[in-house]
């Protein structure tokens, strides 16, 4: 299980997914299942950060700065996003 405490950096598995940015969204393909994913602009902010690695706290900060949302709401969004990625086995 990926450590998602706020101080542990998580990142996308580079061997599991291939992706591109297009028109503000992210289009990705899970290379193991050939399933396509489309990530909207909110998720794309997180996705880009996860490409290089980021802690949960850093992801929350990015959402707050980009969309001017409350930190608690941002934290819920980050946790849900990371849970989705982890379920698909896309995180290191």
């Amino acid at each position: 299980m990926t450590d998602r405490s706020s101080s542990a950096a998580v990142r996308l598995r580079p061997d599991a997914v291939e992706w591109r940015e297009v028109e503000g969204d992210v289009i990705a393909v899970d290379v193991r299942t050939s399933e396509y994913l489309a990530i909207n602009d909110t998720g794309a902010v997180l996705w880009r950060a996860l490409h290089g690695g980021a802690t949960s706290a850093e992801l929350v900060e990015r959402l707050v700065a980009r969309f001017d949302v409350e930190p608690e709401a941002a934290m819920r969004d980050v946790e849900a996003f990371l849970a989705g990625l982890e379920e698909r086995g896309l995180l290191e």
């Binding site: 291939e18 992706w19 591109r20 297009v22 028109e23 969204d25 289009i27 990705a28 393909v29 050939s34 396509y36 489309a38």
Partner: peptide, 10 residues
């Protein structure tokens, strides 16, 4: 653009 990108990923 999405179709082109998906095609490229394939």
């Amino acid at each position: 653009a999405v179709v082109v990108t998906a095609h490229a990923l394939a």
